[in-house]
Design a protein around this nucleic acid. Structure first.
Length: 569
RNA sequence: UGUCCCGUGGUGUAAUGGUAACACACCUGGUUUUGGUCCAGGCAUUUAAGGUUCGAGUCCUUACGGGACAACCA
């Protein structure tokens, strides 16, 4: 209670510390690693970044900011067959877009291959590593199971000289893939599987995207990661929960290879899971390769580039990451929280415009045929400085087909014969009738307007209260646009958790809906790529970056909250 | 039937042994020229059972539940 009051008095909105911050503050208090805070974000360049990575990015970079520390970007590129510079480039672009900058130049684990090799030699000389000639299958078999201890390899007690010779020849390319590996000599009976003589190096005659053919042996993650942290002076190596059991191994390498007081510290937090989406890079890659989506930046993808193209803002993603918190228990964040974050941000900044997605013609019978006028409308009622603009009004308009109903229930606040509604920023109109074709489809709606009810005119008539306000565009002046509406990619609330089922069985076939007969107000002809708008009563939309076609394309970022459609159901 | 991690509303995250708080979602009502926004209100005795204590979500024990670990992936 007292604490809270103090915080409020200071105007300090400082939230309580998450468990990582508590660890750091404890370390700072004890002057661990000279009181430095140095984090890192270490992606493998084998795919595009997704919203889960964004959580980790926000965590690592903000921690560095909070504690006057540094945060590195390091590409964990130890497996050449999966990695590519395309991914390196996209990862850097996405981090920058999110609003963070890494310390100095990007780092690469491949930059440390020589040092890692030297350290491996040292381990051999210390009798703590050996070359094993057995096949992967045999080694796996000897490893035992979580409940059964492993057995030792017959090559485990080779002489140091022989190990040194063999390891040198491994590097020299004398052996084929899989013929030999280097293993750490730890404990085949350890209850922790990762301590049962883990592999340090494997032979891969593969070209690496940065080192080319300079190497034919590549270090494994467990060996390379902690040592790379050490080289870079990382103090807090924050990773996800599945690496928790790797921690003793991380510490084993650091302890056995270094003599300084400085030691990087690995800590783990729960990865992000989002309802109705998959988050594993393997699955996302499959969606791309099998053309279930149109690339990594498809607006339905939970990738950073997909969210960007969909119209999400960096601030909204940062706020989301902040809101979901950091803890160690498994979680599934409801997708609606992400939607809330983007609405909250866009509501403050997005220009209000009018567009009609499913048009039907509205004819104002008592409005002169050749008359047209410009009406003034606020760009954003949330923002006084946003100004206003002029939009054209005429006798024939498009309105939303859903905004008309012939036999309407009492609670229907839109257009229906005999009731009045306001056309936003224009006049109050009284609906008269709907005209239909032979099949009974409504082709046009007729109404009359009250000339004295013009918005902002200050007249008594303009102040009259009507229940509904409709958005519209002038037929003569409207710009034609294509609008893409995205729904969730999966039907199942947690497709990631369905282990025994192919996640693709939950794909939502209606996740993309392209509307081609849409009309928007003429000012939008000049809209720039990625610019965001709020279409009155419809939602937030952003201009697609795809300028290969002449078409004006909008992606719907997110709908507006709609209490009417909820009531209907 | 091993080791490690984790159990607080529908979903997340807080609560430093002292009145279970905040956000999302949901439900009421009010304002509104967007059925948006905004405003007001409602919604959990913390997996269970013991124990320590004046006092336990918090410490201890046991049970139950969930997760991770047996890639020459990261």
């Amino acid at each position: 209670m007292d604490n809270k009051n103090v915080k409020e008095e200071n105007g300090n909105e400082s939230k309580s510390l998450n468990f990582i911050q508590q660890i750091i503050e404890e370390d700072l208090k004890n002057n661990v690693n000279d009181g430095r805070v140095h984090t890192r974000f270490p992606p493998e360049p084998n795919g595009y970044l997704h919203i889960g990575h964004a959580k980790s990015i926000c965590l690592n970079f903000s921690l560095a900011q909070q504690y006057q520390g540094k945060c590195n970007l390091r590409f964990d590129d130890t497996n050449p067959v999966k990695e590519d510079t395309e991914y390196v480039d996209s990862i850097m672009e996405d981090i920058k877009w999110l609003g963070f900058s890494w310390e100095g130049d990007p780092h690469f684990t491949s930059d440390y291959f020589e040092q890692l090799y030297d350290w491996a030699v040292k381990l051999i000389k210390d009798g703590k590593a050996y070359v094993d000639d057995q096949s992967a299958a045999v080694i796996a078999d000897q490893k035992g199971t979580p409940t059964v201890p492993g057995t030792e390899s017959p090559f485990r007690n080779r002489s140091i000289e022989e190990n040194l010779d063999l390891f040198t020849r491994m590097r020299a390319g004398e052996f084929k893939d899989g013929e030999k590996v280097l293993r750490a000599k730890i404990d085949m009976a350890s209850p922790n599987m990762h301590m049962r003589d883990p592999l340090m190096y494997r032979i891969m005659h593969a070209s690496h995207h940065r080192t080319g053919d300079a190497w034919c042996i590549y270090p494994m993650y467990d060996y390379a990661h902690g040592e790379s942290d050490y080289i870079e002076g990382i103090t807090h190596s924050i990773c996800t929960l599945e690496f928790e059991v790797h921690r003793p191994l991380y510490e084993w390498f650091v302890t056995n290879l270094t003599e300084t007081d400085y030691k990087p510290k690995q800590r783990e937090f729960a990865r992000l899971n989002l309802s109705y989406t998959v988050m594993s890079k393997r699955k996302l890659l499959e969606l791309v390769k099998d053309h279930h989506v149109n690339g990594w930046d498809d607006p339905r993808m939970p990738t950073v580039s997909g969210l960007r193209r969909r119209g999400f803002t960096p601030a909204s993603i940062r706020h989301f990451a902040d809101t979901i918190g950091v803890a160690k228990r498994n979680n599934v964040i409801d997708y609606s929280l992400l939607e809330h974050c983007v609405r909250e941000d866009l509501n403050k900044t997005a220009t209000r415009v009018m567009g009609v997605l499913n048009p039907v013609k509205l004819i104002i019978n008592n409005y002169p045929e050749n008359q047209e006028e410009m009406l003034n409308i606020d760009n954003n009622p949330e923002d006084e400085n946003a100004g206003s603009r002029e939009i054209p009004f005429s006798r024939e308009l498009y309105i939303e087909r859903d905004d008309f109903m012939e036999d309407a229930p009492r609670k229907f606040f839109r257009m229906t014969p005999g009731r009045e509604v306001r056309l936003k920023a224009a006049y109050i109109v009284m609906c008269e009738k709907a005209v239909k074709d032979e099949d009974g489809n409504i082709t046009e709606i007729h109404c009359t307007y009250d000339p004295k009810s013009k918005s902002g005119s200050g007249s008594e008539e303009s102040k009259r209260k009507v229940k509904g306000t409709l958005h519209w565009v002038s037929v003569k002046h409207a710009a034609k646009a294509e609008v893409r509406i995205y729904d969730r990619l999966f039907n199942h609330e947690a497709p990631d958790a369905q282990k025994d089922v192919d996640f693709k069985e939950f794909l939502n076939p209606d996740s993309l809906n392209i509307l081609t007969e849409c009309y928007v107000e003429p000012s939008l002809k000049d809209a720039k790529a990625e610019e965001s708008f709020q279409f009155t009563r419809l939602g937030y939309f952003s201009v697609d970056k795809d300028t290969t076609s002449e078409k004006l394309i909008f992606n719907r970022t997110v709908s507006l909250k709609d209490s009417w459609s909820k009531k209907k159901n």
